[in-house]
Design a protein around this nucleic acid. Sequence first.
DNA 1: ACCTCCCGCCATCGT
DNA 2: ACGATGGCGGGAGGT
Length: 773
Amino acid sequence: MLIEKPEIKMEVECLALRDLTSPNKIKANLDEVGCRNNQKENIFVDRKRATSHNKDAMSTMLMNGKNAASPEQLHITPIKHGEQGAQPHPDPWTPTANLKMLISAASPDIRDREMKKVLFRPIENERKADGEDVKMDDQFDAAEEDEVVDEDEKKPSRKQKSLGLLCQKFLSLYPDYPASEPISISLDKVATFLGVERRRIYDIINVLESLMIVGRRVKNQYVWHGRWRLSSTLAELQAIGRQQHYHLLMGQAGEDASRDGAPPITLEDRGHGDSNYTVAGRRKDKSLRIMSQKFVMLFLVSKTQTVSLDMAAKILIEESQDTSNNSKYKTKVRRLYDIANVLTSLGLIRKVHVQDERGRKPAFRWIGPSDFQNSLAEDTEAVVSIAPPDANSAPSSPCRKLPGLLLQPVDYSRICVSNSAQFGTTTADAAPPGSVCRTPSHSDRIPLLCSEGLEPMTMHVCPEESSSQRAAPHQRAYLPSLAQASVVMLYGGPTAQVGLDPLTTEGQRSPGSRESVLGKRKWGEEDGKRATKEKREASGKTIQEEGSLEGTSFQGSTSQMTFTPGRAPGDVNLDRHSPPNNQGQASHYLYLSNSADLGALKFLLSGSQTPGSLTGTMPTLALPYILVSSSTLPPYPLAASGSDAHANLSFNLPSSSMISSARFVMGAAGPYVVAPEFAHLMAAAPIISSPEQHGMYGSGSATPHSPLEPRAPVTFLQTEPQTPQNLKETAGGSGSKSFFQTPGTMETGSYAPLARRRGSAQRRLDIGHTPSS
DNA sequence: ACCTCCCGCCATCGT
DNA sequence: ACGATGGCGGGAGGT
């Protein structure tokens, strides 16, 4: 698919870089380069071509592959489009189109399709005026544009410019489960590409940072981690939230809802509050990240997993005592909406309404993975030491600090033993096997996706082997009768598309469609019920749930699900259950727990038809079939089989590795099971990345997975529940502050307890020490 | 009229 | 000092 000719590629890149927003230009350029179709009729064709041509370019640009131009080169000055947004063009070559094209290029086919169809469609009008860049050297034929562009008078509606949509686009640019190598994100490029101001990108990035989906590398440059760490991050947040007693707060403030007034317990009360940030108002920056983490924590500790905006705002305001202050409240609410939009795009929450005495209040419901609670938690105990639900009991605090979590900084700093050393070491391996705490991070590493399009997601995961990833391409999972998106979410892999034909799946990604289904549903109920219910409802149709389902579409009743790498709504943790030791055990049961909606759902995959498969160091697990039986899903037997009959999941497990955190990823082609634990193993092996990726990764900061992942298991010495209380206060005063990593730094942060200068502290690079300077 | 939340000014921070 | 970040809240689109 890629262009064979480097030169061309380069050119395209350049073009793209120069003017991402103007499709016409690109097109023109492409033509110049080699694409000759100008005819409108052929636009699509051109596009395709362009796409293919641009694939690299895109990747490069956005992801900053190594090959790509150097950052500097790439770096484009942000264009402030004053007028952006203003005029949309309907036509294909609008910026949007362009974007699509590029995007598609960048990612796997599926993504491509999805993106285009889904994301962009809705957005179609959104585009900034092409004019902005026009100055660019070229002659972009105005004429052409004109023709093509109809000038829609229609300006993009506000919705089209929403942060949520923007976030979806942004997310579509990167794989949910990137290969281990780091993918760089150039702020400017992305902003330009998406046609928005940088400011907006920051909004997104900040939230993503809070979840460790991205990390900051250096100025203007961020690192895309994808969702590998999401589960672990969530687990940590949950643990922290418990430690901090957020659940109590929730109860008071939120769930009870009734009381506006003084929530009995405030974070501050508890002490921790936002210390750092809050501290004395010291630095507020990163507040969005902190807020985001706290907000997420609220969901994670909530029994109902539903948090009303009002409650969240109140709780989050803690800092500012002003709570009472209306303006403060309003501001908080605004921010929460911003955060919620991003989280919604991530498929972690969805908007709902709660009824309280006063009436209906806007709220959000967690639809993301929740299993980690169980699985992870369980594992966690074993593996990761997460703070026990009971705050006190747990001596071990979350192993790693969440980057963003400023909350804990204080404590951690004190408490934690950092393995700063490890930072340097990049690899996942860093974590000593024996280490007490295992950070989930391992999981993160797992390189899964292969980007190449849909291709075979299947990979062998050979811990050691880095090389071969794809064992069996094209395996597919069939989920007969599974209509539910939620199910899909379970495994969380890449997005699942139910339809075999990616194309058909268009709707899947739901960006536009968000809510379509949702709206109908009632979310208040029990998760389990709901899930089930939904499934049924959903079955047979394409379901597009907002966040959760993104990417999943079901065609018809049949549900063949193809999981595409791109995004998975939820992470699925497979086998968390399997004891680490078990690896070899025949019983490889893979659980797919859907954290999200199906909180309860867990699929037991006994794929191990091949008993021996998992055994030993490299046991391979061949799963001709994977049957998933879920109580919840009784009706829906899940069978994953390689393409057809033979799907195999083969992966090798290192003897030592644990399966527990394995993830099940289903690529378009097939399911993959990756155990986080193995991740490191896997890490070694780049999973398939497309060539481009390779390039990209290479470039990655020195350590590809390293800093990030490597969370060394950190053990926190202190047992105390130091919760926020201390944190808060301390934060300000103590070194903890320095300690805080800024949000986003979680990764590193965890590792680096070291005090940092504020500045540095503020921004910790994922990459750890990376070159940032 | 209220809910959302875009937009972009401008204070801070980072380099 | 200058550019990068990101807090913040006015005010307007949506419903």
